[in-house]
Simulated scan of single mutants.
Amino acid sequence: FGFGGLNNKLFILSHLAVTGYRVEKTQLFKIIFPNSTTVLQKDGELNSFADTVYKKYLIENAMTEQEIKSIDKRYWEFAVPVEDGE
């Protein structure tokens, strides 16, 4: 197949698997405002939800640090890391 062909790609993939290479996940953050059920949505809008669906919308609207700061840097102080399994 030559350089860059299928054999080379398979060799690289097998090498990465053997050496334990992992792709690091991008850290996501949820925005938690004190004493509030308001959620900062990905479109930059603020929306208030009933307690029963609040946590679901927090996770659905989790964003990266850059996404949060691109909406408004002041929201960053309310950022809380999303844990695996949430």
Score class of each variant (00 low, 15 high):
1 F>C: 00
3 F>G: 01
3 F>I: 06
4 G>F: 03
4 G>V: 00
4 G>K: 04
6 L>F: 05
7 N>P: 01
7 N>R: 11
8 N>T: 00
8 N>I: 01
8 N>M: 12
10 L>E: 07
10 L>Q: 13
11 F>W: 09
12 I>D: 11
12 I>N: 11
12 I>K: 10
12 I>P: 07
12 I>Y: 12
14 S>F: 10
14 S>E: 12
14 S>H: 04
16 L>K: 15
17 A>R: 13
17 A>E: 06
17 A>H: 01
17 A>F: 04
17 A>C: 05
17 A>Y: 04
19 T>K: 10
19 T>E: 11
20 G>F: 03
21 Y>C: 04
21 Y>H: 15
22 R>L: 13
23 V>F: 14
24 E>G: 08
26 T>V: 13
26 T>F: 03
28 L>T: 10
29 F>H: 08
29 F>W: 07
29 F>D: 00
30 K>T: 15
32 I>E: 15
32 I>Q: 14
34 P>Y: 09
35 N>V: 03
35 N>M: 08
36 S>H: 05
37 T>E: 13
37 T>R: 13
37 T>S: 10
38 T>R: 07
38 T>S: 08
38 T>K: 12
38 T>P: 08
38 T>H: 01
39 V>M: 01
40 L>C: 01
41 Q>S: 12
41 Q>Y: 04
43 D>K: 09
44 G>R: 09
44 G>Y: 10
44 G>L: 10
44 G>S: 10
45 E>I: 02
46 L>Q: 08
48 S>V: 08
48 S>L: 07
49 F>S: 09
49 F>C: 00
49 F>H: 14
51 D>L: 14
52 T>A: 11
53 V>D: 12
54 Y>E: 10
54 Y>R: 06
55 K>S: 10
55 K>R: 06
55 K>A: 14
56 K>H: 06
57 Y>P: 07
57 Y>E: 14
59 I>K: 15
59 I>C: 08
59 I>Y: 14
59 I>A: 13
60 E>M: 11
61 N>T: 00
61 N>E: 04
61 N>G: 05
61 N>Q: 11
61 N>W: 06
62 A>N: 00
62 A>S: 14
64 T>C: 00
64 T>Q: 09
65 E>C: 14
65 E>G: 06
65 E>I: 05
66 Q>D: 15
67 E>S: 11
67 E>R: 01
67 E>N: 03
68 I>K: 03
68 I>Y: 06
69 K>E: 09
70 S>M: 08
71 I>C: 08
71 I>M: 08
72 D>Q: 09
72 D>F: 03
72 D>C: 06
73 K>F: 05
75 Y>D: 06
75 Y>F: 15
75 Y>W: 13
75 Y>H: 14
76 W>S: 10
78 F>W: 15
78 F>E: 01
78 F>P: 02
79 A>T: 03
80 V>C: 09
80 V>E: 07
80 V>N: 02
80 V>L: 05
81 P>E: 07
81 P>S: 05
82 V>K: 08
82 V>D: 02
84 D>P: 15
85 G>L: 12
85 G>V: 04
86 E>C: 04
